[in-house]
């Protein structure tokens, strides 16, 4: 590459690129010892499902606790497979588990109370999303092709259309285009 003489225009562009490139500069201001996790880039869906799983597990342990809930005796539940000797041998184990579980529940409940008392359920990214419209007047129909008000629906392609001229267009759409129009309105249902 070095052999070919660079065009003057190429050269000036390369100079510009060199000028706006920040690779060298950024190395200086960053902490060189810091190595972020390779898998830190997660999409929103992943993050939400992870946090929800965590939430669910906390709720589950919460439900399985409390004064009124009978404590599951792990040793005795195994039934006839175990000998009575074993059961008597493990009498101490449930007590420890019970104590540990009670403690964590206590902390959880307290935390929850503190959070819940002033405001109710916590505000999360998912639950501030507003609900669908319940107002019947808001389901107005518009022509899929032109966007004009529409009174008719083509039963074949399910496209809404404004008048008979647009209907002519609807009926002469190439294959697959009607689906794209439906998708733009969010009405293209694909059953998997």
């Amino acid at each position: 590459m070095a052999l070919s003489t660079p065009q003057p225009s190429d050269d000036s562009h390369q100079q510009l690129l060199d000028q706006i490139d920040i690779t060298a500069q950024r190395e200086r201001i960053r902490n060189r010892n810091w190595k972020p996790s390779q898998r830190r880039n997660k999409n929103v869906k992943q993050i939400i499902s992870e946090s929800q799983r965590k939430e669910a597990s906390v709720l589950a342990s919460q439900n399985g606790s409390g004064a009124s809930t009978p404590f599951p005796a792990t040793g005795t539940n195994t039934g006839g497979a175990m000998t009575p000797v074993n059961t008597s041998g493990s009498t101490k184990q449930p007590n420890i588990a019970q104590a540990a579980q009670n403690l964590s529940t206590l902390v959880l409940e307290k935390n929850l109370q503190r959070n819940a008392l002033p405001v109710g359920p916590a505000v999360t990214y998912t639950n501030i999303e507003s609900a669908p419209s319940l107002h019947p007047a808001h389901s107005k129909h518009y022509c899929d092709i032109t966007g004009l008000p529409s009174r008719y629906t083509d039963p074949k392609s399910r496209l809404r259309y404004h008048d008979k001229e647009v209907f002519g267009v609807v009926r002469t759409l190439p294959q697959g285009v009607a689906e794209n129009y439906l998708a733009a309105r969010g009405a293209h249902v694909v059953l998997k």
Partner: peptide, 12 residues
């Protein structure tokens, strides 16, 4: 104001 136009299933 009318999210249904673009297929967003939320109130306006």
């Amino acid at each position: 104001f009318q999210p249904g136009i673009a297929g967003v299933d939320q109130a306006g």
